[in-house]
Design a protein around this nucleic acid. Structure first.
Lengths: 144, 144
DNA sequence: TATTGTTATACTCTATAACTATA
DNA sequence: TATAGTTATAGAGTATAACAATA
């Protein structure tokens, strides 16, 4: 009823609160990455790379929203640990296809499991709020 | 009604959707920082530092969830641009108090204005959903 | 000519450890 | 001894530009 933040539209206020929530989670997510010996960008890459769908380097760059040249280094480190591998493109020999190795898939699953755990702020919501939140976010992301 | 994601509690599903939303926003937020010539950590620091409440270096480190030694460099760059300044602590001469300069405050306000703009995904929510989202997040963060 | 991925370069962020000046 | 901030060091992410191989 009363404004939750200073002022502005409800969407603006929600966005402000969302940013605050995520900044507060930075440390926790970073700690999870460290548990697996992964740097943040490496963790994100491993989340994005679906074992069932190998994809070109450029697709990973797009998903990570960074330059192609960065992906080279990130993949180098993941490949050095045997978590992913580069395969030659089949039709276009310029592209390299990234595939998650079995070891990478195993680590990825344990990682996802840890990352799925909701932060305290969400865990303590009542079931009604949690469901409403999930449904609204699903609509926002176009999943509904 | 139907599960929005694969499985799990509503809070877990909401958290998964939230992470997806934020990853999708990474590029936009980074672009805003670049508009002001700020690196991401510098932008975050400028958001955290309230002009009305100067605070010690260590408080900024805590807010940024990084080591004290990092803050030295981040503040060095902000200070070099005249956006913040270090003042000697009044009671304890070991501490340095960070104060946002008038120039920093002006830039900070323009920055906040840009960052307050909600992403497309939230902006297109109906008013009812937007308000519900805001209120739930406010409860989650303990603001209500 | 255009594109994919790499390399070279330069800057920022990050943690750890050693240091200083205070306390 | 302990603490606040700095410095030194090393590793990682980031963008830009130049490059090789391929299209």
């Amino acid at each position: 009823m009363a404004p939750a933040t200073t002022s502005g539209s409800a969407a603006t206020e929600a966005w402000t609160l969302l940013q605050r929530l995520m900044v507060g989670q930075k440390g926790r997510v970073h700690t999870i990455a460290a548990e697996f010996g992964l740097a943040p960008a490496q963790m994100l890459a491993l989340q994005v790379l679906e074992p069932e769908h190998p994809c070109p380097m450029s697709a990973l760059a797009q998903a990570l929203r960074c330059d192609n040249s960065n992906v080279t280094g990130i993949v180098d480190r993941l490949e050095a640990r045997g978590l992913v591998e580069r395969r030659p493109g089949e039709t276009d020999r310029r592209v390299k296809i990234l595939a998650v190795t079995p070891a990478g898939e195993a680590l990825r699953e344990r990682l996802q499991e840890r990352l799925r755990e909701p932060p305290e702020a969400l865990a303590r919501l009542g079931e009604e709020d949690a469901q409403a939140l999930r449904d609204i976010l699903a609509r926002a992301l176009g999943d509904a």
